[in-house]
Design a protein around this nucleic acid. Structure first.
Lengths: 219, 219
DNA sequence: AATAAAAAGTACCACATGGTAGAAAAATGT
DNA sequence: ACATTTTTCTACCATGTGGTACTTTTTATT
């Protein structure tokens, strides 16, 4: 099925292609980027690209899997209670210095709304997994200390995720006005949860963001 | 500048075009729909379309203005306090029977993240206006009865909007699992606000949704 | 060095894209 | 009835699209 098992040295080219695809998908979404652009960016011809990935769709899925799995893997390794939320906050906090990832997921997830979109199932599954994990986390936390106003754990989980998505959209539209991370912390406090603050790594600030010279990564 | 002032009878064709464009943009976003498709849907040639709207970009802006203004106009007419939030809930409640509108705004707003996108300013302004209005509403409400956990009105406003966006995205990905309206009511209760429930119009249920036969508008 | 496999390229294909030029048709005002 | 303006069309253009067929170059294995 997969045209290339990652043997030999070609795997290096594969990685270069995936990186390029990620960058361009993040800039302009899936539909409006051509495999030729991606190929050029990876210093290869567009059919050289198609040799490694049979189609544009396959390439997208590969990009999503690669970029998501490193983050989401920790979820499967049985994180509990507040750890899950703190992990999420950490990821979101770091996203400030990776607008590409935010852009990729914002743009492609909305395209993937269409049931025929190649990434539709990917995102449906992703949200299901996230909601489930966060839901269990809230359930645990609410047992120890119930929220000021009653709310179902799964409901809280969906709100938490929706909030993150919506804030990131607003942040991309006007980066200087929105602070996703801070907002999420406030939201959790409203539910009686006080997560440990994510340590601020200075190198996450003042990072020049490729392709977005006017976007300041400092929140 | 605008190639046609809405004089004479051609305004009828214009309307037909805008409707078609709306429908198709809602289905597949802006970038991946061609003016030829829109023109065909409006029973006109694609250059006939271009006679009324000088370019694809102009058409998009017209669609957005037309679809948003009817809803948002009430905002400008000085709505106060909880009225604003109840108006928002009403719109969102009705959106269940209009997946096209939700889809249009979800898809195009994420595309418009790109500063060069023809609708970038439109959405930036829209969110600014919404946040301001909702912010004033929360400010009023919090004066009468402060929220259980302290939160700035503008912060609450941004969260409210972000939540609505994020939930609608989730709803489009798996319609049967998410109930945007209910979630928002829960969120408001968390802030100590209890809006009057939106009356359920039976005709909003069981409406066949064009192009989404598997999507049930019943929440 | 020979060989098999993998990687990359050239040349193409059929089709879609937004937009322009210029003419024909229809509606409108007098 | 006539002249003018508005609407609509056909034909075309340069460019871009994802993908295929086939060939050449590179790489790794013996």
């Amino acid at each position: 099925m997969t045209p290339k098992p990652p043997t030999r040295k070609g795997g290096l080219t594969r990685a270069r292609i995936v990186d390029s695809a990620f960058e361009l998908f993040a800039e302009s979404g899936f539909t409006s980027v051509s495999i030729r652009e991606i190929a050029a960016h990876a210093h290869i011809s567009h059919v050289g690209l198609l040799h490694h990935f049979g189609s544009k769709d396959e390439l997208l899925l590969e990009v999503l899997r690669r970029r998501d799995s490193s983050d989401i893997a920790e979820l499967r390794d049985g994180a509990h209670g507040i750890e899950v939320l703190e992990w999420a906050l950490h990821v979101i906090h770091d996203n400030v210095s990776r607008p590409g990832i935010v852009s990729l997921f914002v743009k492609v997830s909305s395209e993937a709304t269409d049931p025929d979109h190649p990434a539709h199932e990917f995102f449906a599954n992703r949200y299901a997994l996230l909601a489930e994990s966060a839901g269990r986390a809230f359930a645990e936390l609410f047992e120890d200390s119930p929220p000021p106003i009653a709310i179902e754990p799964l409901e809280a989980a969906r709100q938490f995720i929706a909030l993150a998505d919506g804030l990131q959209l607003q942040w991309m539209l006007s980066p200087h006005r929105v602070t996703t991370y801070d907002s999420l912390v406030v939201f959790l406090r409203t539910l009686g949860i006080t997560p440990r603050p994510v340590p601020s790594f200075p190198e996450h600030r003042l990072v020049a963001v490729a392709g977005h010279p006017e976007r300041t990564p400092i929140q």
